[in-house]
Structure formats: structure tokens, C-alpha cells
Amino acid sequence: MHKRALLAAFTALVAAAATFGVRLTADAAESEAVGQAAAPATFAHPGVLVSRAQLDFVKGKVSAGAQPWAAAYTQMVSSRYASLSRTPKPRATVECGSYSNPNNGCTDEREDALAAYTDALIWYIGGNPAYAQKSIALMDAWSATVKAHTNSNAPLQTGWAGSVWPRAAEIIKYTYSGWPNQARFATMLRTVYLPTVIGGSSSNGNWELSMMEAAAGISVFLDDRASYDRAITRFKARTAAYVYVTADGSQPKYPPVGSVDTRAELISYWQGQSTFVDGLSQETCRDFVHTGYGLSAISHVAETTRIQGEDLWPEVSDRMRHALGFHTKFENGTAVPANICGGSVVKGLGPVTEVAYNALANRLGIAMSNSKTYTEARRPQGTNNLFVAWETLTHANNPA
């Protein structure tokens, strides 16, 4: 339901409910209008982006020297994120302005989170407890220090870092014994990260999608069913408004929050694009880099829901297969037609296709030739140094 219609319906609902002495909240109305998600009765752990079965599959492939997993593992352990001499750089206040200017702890926070996740993967796959202990040291340093994120990019920064911390924490908590400060880390996620990301954003769609990825992952780690439901409900609405398919009608869906509620405003929000074709995203005509952020976050949340037993891949499959095919086609060299972004796009989708390609092509059997070409040519896909990391290793041809 569109924002203004929702508001009108909510107002009427409040008036009717008042007659019976019932008090409703805007969040409750939104959840009812969009459709309530269904958190599992018991969360699966580890269960943020990667499951134990997936990790076991990868461990077996790396141990056997099979490709592309062995090369991907070598890439990971050779990266700066795998250094056992890494010194964490936590801050009480992380200040991030537009395009990280100023950058007071922004890069440090993101990279320490990526390092914690990297170390957790190396621990599980390689079996060296020094990496588990290093992952714990990084998480402990931040949980003992960080209190807030400030400045204009604070919501996005919180989403990026908040997406990665739970991946590391899930692996360590459920596969390694000996993390005394685990409860303090959980408190950090609940008090510093979750309140910022759970409310979403009316900015470009990649912001809200990354924030919902963080909210969903944090909720899994905290076994917080209410927050998980709220995150997935908003995720569904934002995903539907981020990628256009012809089933939407003559134009894309309006974003779930914000002031965009006319066709003219929608076209402006879609970077001036007024011709809508299957797979076009709200940020395609901005650049493929930010589009890749949004598509990656969609794939991460969908994969987490699959692990948790809900599996939103069938629901998002039409949008994602078209989105990946549309953007990888141009990345692979197809000329951009004049009716798309004026005939010129800024490429740079990034290492973001493995999770979705595995889910859609391998699990659901959807033919995706453009995505296949793009994905296989770039293996092993590494990290974007923000919140994407090592997905050829974790998800390439992974049936688990």
C-alpha cells in the first residue's frame, strides 16, 4: 500500500479502534498493510548468510583442493583481512559524512568487521584456533568501545558494518568454545546498531536494503523474532520498489517511505529514467556500483531467510534474475541502447553475483546466461572492502 493511502487507512483504523479502546502504532499498521513476515520458532545457527551445512561443503572442497573453492580460500587467507597481527581500531563515536568525508573510524570499523568475518571463516575451514581468537579479539575491541555513529552517512555505515558483524559472530558463537564477552557483543548489536537500522531509510534504495540486511542478521544473532519480522517486512517492500518488472505496471512501485508519490517524483528518484524495462533498478542510471550494493543486500537477506526456513528466493526470483541479467549483459559488453540512461552507464557491478546466481541458476534452475558469463569470468570473487566478502568461496555451486 502506498504511503498516503496507508496513512489514510491507518487514520481510519485508529478512529475505529478508539471506539473499542484499542491503541495502534504506525509500525503495527505498516506491518499489517505490507504483510507480516514469519520468523522461525527457533532460529538456525550459524544462520546469517552462511549455514553450517554450507560451511561444511566448502571445507570439504578446500580440503580436496577443488576449484574454484581452493583458489578462493587462498585469495582470502592471502588478504590483509586475514592478518593475525592486525590491530583493531575501535572508536566510541564513528563519524561518517557523505562519501566518508569526514572519515573518522568509518573504514576502520568496516575493515575490522570484514577481518572478524574472514578470521571466522578461516577458523572453520582451516581449523586453526588462532583465527577464532583473532576474530573474537576484533569483536571484543569494538563491543568494549563503540557507542554511536554520527553525521550524514551514519545510517549507511551502521548498515554496512552491522551486516558483517553478525556473520562473524554467528560462526564463532556456534562453532568455537570460549568467547567470554559474547553477551557484551550482543548488547552492542542491540543498542548501537539495531535501533539505527531497523527504522529504514528514505534515501536511495541501497541504503535501506543494506540496513535491512543488518537488521535481519542482528535479529538472527539475538534470536529476536519481532525485529526479524519487522526487518523482513520492510525488506520485501523495498525490494519490490528497487527493481522493476513488467508485472508492476507502467511504472515502478513507490518506495515504502519518503515523499516520492507522483510519477514525476518517481522518475526523478529513478535518476531521470522514464522508460522502464525488466531488471532496471532505481540506481541503474546513477551507477552500477551502488546498484550492486542494493542487489547484493537483497541476495544476502534472501539467503538468510532460506537458512531460517522461510526462503524468500522464489518471491524475489523474477526481480533478481532480470536485474542480474540486465546489468551483467552490459558488463559483458553489450551496447547500451539509447532509451536506457541516455545510452550510457557507469559500470562496476562488483563481486556481488555469486549468492544470487547459485540460488537462482543452481537451486531454482533458472537459465541465466549473462549472469553465468559474468560470474564465472570473475572467479574467485573477493571483497568490495565494504560488506561483500569471499562469496565464490562460500556460495559458488554450493548445494547445501
Rank of each mutant, 00 (worst) to 15 (best):
E303L: 14
T19P: 01
T42S: 15
E30R: 15
L138Q: 01
D223V: 12
A66L: 05
F221V: 14
V345I: 13
N398T: 08
L194D: 04
T305I: 12
G342T: 05
L349S: 01
S163Q: 04
T262E: 14
A396K: 03
S78Y: 00
D140K: 05
A82T: 02
E315H: 06
S227L: 12
T11V: 13
N153T: 08
E310T: 07
H2K: 13
W390H: 04
N385I: 02
F235H: 07
A396G: 07
A115F: 03
A44L: 07
Q157R: 13
L7K: 15
S219A: 11
Y374Q: 02
V220P: 05
K89W: 13
L393D: 07
L49N: 13
K134E: 06
V260Y: 09
A144Y: 03
M368L: 05
E354L: 02
V34H: 12
N370E: 05
A361D: 11
A215N: 04
A132S: 01
R263W: 13
A168F: 03
G178V: 01
Q36C: 11
A72G: 06
W179Y: 04
L324Q: 10
P399Y: 11
M368N: 00
P166I: 10
S152T: 09
L266F: 07
G47H: 05
H290Y: 14
G105L: 01
D261R: 14
E283C: 07
S344W: 09
N385R: 14
V146M: 08
N103G: 00
V301D: 03
A302N: 06
N397F: 06
A367W: 09
D229M: 09
T334H: 06
L84K: 09
D224E: 08
G272M: 09
L6C: 03
A66S: 03
A53S: 11
Y131G: 02
A356M: 01
A335H: 01
V48M: 01
G249S: 12
A18R: 15
E376F: 08
K329M: 04
A26V: 14
L156E: 00
D140G: 08
G348V: 00
A240R: 15
K347P: 02
A9M: 06
S268H: 08
E354P: 01
A302H: 02
A41R: 15
A8N: 12
P337G: 02
K236T: 11
P40W: 12
L280H: 12
L24G: 08
C285L: 06
G279T: 11
A26Y: 14
E354H: 04
A41C: 03
V257I: 11
V355T: 09
S250I: 15
F276P: 09
T284L: 06
P351T: 08
F57W: 11
T233C: 00
E265Q: 15
A12M: 14
S259D: 10
R91M: 12
F57R: 01
S79C: 02
P102I: 11
Y176F: 05
T262A: 10
V14G: 09
L24Q: 05
T392C: 00
M368K: 08
F326H: 06
Y124W: 10
H290M: 06
A361Y: 11
V336D: 00
G348I: 00
Y117N: 09
E391Y: 05
A237H: 14
L360D: 14
N101G: 02
S31A: 15
K347R: 03
